[in-house]
Amino acid sequence: MTDHEHAKCRELLGSLSDYVDGTLGEQLCQEIERHMRECQNCRVVVDTLRKTIHLYHQTAEPADLPNSVRQRLYRTLNLDEFSR
């Protein structure tokens, strides 16, 4: 990779979060996509970044409060009468 190309990688790095979230302006999107066609490393970074976020979304299991924790919380808040 030449220094010139690497400078482009650095320049685009700051926009990658917005890019994978789909909130980046069209012009920058096109610039990233044009660059990725020529830069294997940036392609991998974008793909694995997207996958990383996807995996964390998958692991965001439904929030669950253990019953004992819930009971103590209701007691602390004097809400025992509403605890089912």
Binding site: C9, Q40, N41, V45, D47, L55, Q58
Partner: peptide, 20 residues
């Protein structure tokens, strides 16, 4: 400054059941 990526292995092809 932003930390530049150093890992360029594409692991997206691993099956989801292994990733998770």
């Amino acid at each position: 400054p932003l930390e530049e990526p150093t890992q360029f292995i594409d692991w997206c092809c691993l099956p989801e059941e292994e990733l998770l």
